[in-house]
Amino acid sequence: MTKKYILGLFRDEVPLLHAVHELRKEGNKIHEVYTPFPVHGLDEALGYKRSRLPRAGFLFGCLGGTLGLSMQAWMLGVDWPMNIGGKPALAWVDFVPVTFELTVLITALGMVATYLVASEFIPGNEPKIPDPRISSDVFCIAIPAEDASSSVGSRLRELGAEVQEKEVEL
C-alpha cells in the first residue's frame, strides 16, 4: 500500500546524522532512514532498541549443542553400544568435535533464517525503497506526510537535504 512521504535526501552521512538528531529533538516522527552502508550511531539516533538476534543465536546454539551430543550418546551408547577392545561405548571425549560442529552449524543456520524472516527478506521480494540511489550514494530520511508538520520540508532543507514528496510503499 502506498503512502505519501516527505523525503529528505542527503549526500553525506554527517549532515544526515545531525538532521536525524535535530528532527527527533523537535518531535518529528521519522518512518525510517535509508543508507548505502551501515552508518555508525544511526540506530541509537533513531532510538532503535538493540537487535534481539544474538539471543536467538544463543538459543539455537544451545539447541545444536544438546542435539549433537545427545544424538551421538544415544546412537553409540544406548541404541547400539559396541565393544571395541573393551573401551567404553560412551566415549564422550570423542563426541566433542561433532558436537562443536553441529553447535556452530545450527547456530549459523538458525540465526540467518531468523534474520531473513524478521527482515522479511525472501527471494524475489519487491524492495520497498524510496529512491534507487539509496544503495549507491544517497542517504534518505522518510517522514510520513500525514504526521508531518508543515515546516518539516523547509527544516530539512535547512539541515542540508534535497526535499521530495513522493507516493511510495515503504
Partner: peptide
C-alpha cells in the same frame, strides 16, 4: 538481481540487524 537480493532496502533497522548477524557469524 531482484530475486537474489531478497528485497533488501538499506533501512537503518536492516543495517542494524545486518551488522548484528555479521558479528555473530564472524564470532562463530
Amino acid at each position: 538481481y531482484s530475486l537474489m537480493s531478497f528485497g533488501w532496502n538499506g533501512s537503518a533497522k536492516g543495517w542494524q540487524r545486518f551488522e548484528s548477524v555479521s558479528l555473530i557469524l564472524a564470532g562463530l
